[in-house]
Computed example of a mutant assay.
Amino acid sequence: MHDQMPSAAGFVASDPDADWGLPGWTYNDPDFFDAEMAAVIRPSWQIVCHESDLARTGDWRSIDYVGESVIVVRGEDGVVRGFTNVCRHRAMRLLDGTGGCAKKIICRYHAWAYELDGRLTGVPESRDYPMLDKASQGLSPVGLEIWRGFVFVRLDDDGGPSVAAMMAPYEQEIEPYRFADLRTITPAYMRPRAVNWKNIGDNYSDNLHIPVAHPGLTRLFGKSYAIAAEPYVDKMSGYLVDKPSVDPWERFYQSHLPHADHLPEANQRLWLYYKLWPNIAFDIYPDQVDFMQWLPISPTQSVLRMMAFALPDDRREMKLVRYANDRINRHVNAEDTWLITRVQAGMASKSFTVGPIGRSEVCLRSFAAKIRAAIPEARLHHAPPPGWSKRPRTVRG
């Protein structure tokens, strides 16, 4: 873990291309995609579930991304561990689906058996394998961190910061929301998007499009929408205005949002948005908390993985407000999908190389600087010859 991280401004100040966005070719180039998966996505933390989803011994949840399937499971000792979902014999996928409960993990190909802590304990006809060492053939572990009740995994450990370290600048803001006490109200579901993963994240942190493309959010927030960038976290926020909206769902939410006793008065009508490097977002409302991650599938295909959590609350008005919240954000999501689909198409135009980033676009500047630091080829306005990601790399500006 990095004990002392550079500031977001430090990332940008050290970047000679700080006034420019990422070139269009980086949003559709297969070599750049391969480089990103190795340098950005595999070493990054990905949310899997809430710890309460693993309440019992043997409870497990899964996440599939970058060609890997990962499971997290609670062992008999109460510890939650993460493993790749692969048998060490013939690479058989061990567990299917998004979750369940198991006493042991048994391969349905040749019946190799693994304990919940990953140990290999059962091999039929084990004497037939003269080189077999059960102690070294347990399930392959992945990095795991539990932050405020949420379970994160990462495939590669590059020495980068923990989730707790990345979120440290906002710990006091998040504290009142009692993340550890949240419970799942909407299990993880997937939505495909025909865009590069970066386009989704860029749009999430783009402050300038709110008054142009999101009339509903503008009606709700007025002029209170604000953004900020910390080293590995972008923050957006807005306060609900008192003026009743012309939209019925927005107006219902404004007028019926019940008091949340666990929140300070300043947060009763506050919507908070955080984007965790590089591809996770969580939206914090007085009534619930939504998580979303945009998982890369190919240079021009991604999938949104979304889920929602809330504190137990059986009040009828809270249930109705959460439904109104969903209706509002479905509309916002549809607007964003329309936007990013057209941006993705434009990125393929030979007329577009790279566009400027305004100084007020602090989140976009921070993200682009980190991508360029991880993959120096992102400084090039045109793609190198095909195959560059597999050859020794020399980058010129």
Rank of each mutant, 00 (worst) to 15 (best):
H209A: 06
L220R: 11
P169E: 02
A229H: 07
I146W: 04
S162P: 10
E145H: 07
S136L: 12
D261I: 01
P258V: 06
L220W: 03
S136Q: 15
L272A: 06
Y170C: 10
I174Q: 03
P264G: 07
P141M: 02
K235I: 04
A266H: 11
G159A: 04
E171F: 01
R251V: 04
L263M: 07
N207L: 13
N196G: 07
I200A: 13
Y253N: 06
D261G: 06
E173D: 15
S224N: 09
N203T: 08
L272S: 11
S245M: 04
L257D: 07
Y204M: 11
N196L: 04
L144E: 02
G159M: 02
P211K: 03
P215Y: 01
Y170L: 13
N199S: 13
V246T: 15
A266S: 14
I185H: 04
V246R: 14
G216A: 02
S205E: 12
P176Y: 02
Y177G: 08
L217C: 05
M166F: 03
G216S: 05
G160V: 04
G216E: 05
K235C: 08
V151D: 00
L276A: 09
L217K: 05
P264H: 08
G149P: 11
D247K: 10
A194H: 12
P141A: 08
L182V: 10
D156L: 12
E250W: 04
Y273F: 14
K275E: 10
Y170E: 11
P176G: 08
A260H: 05
L139T: 09
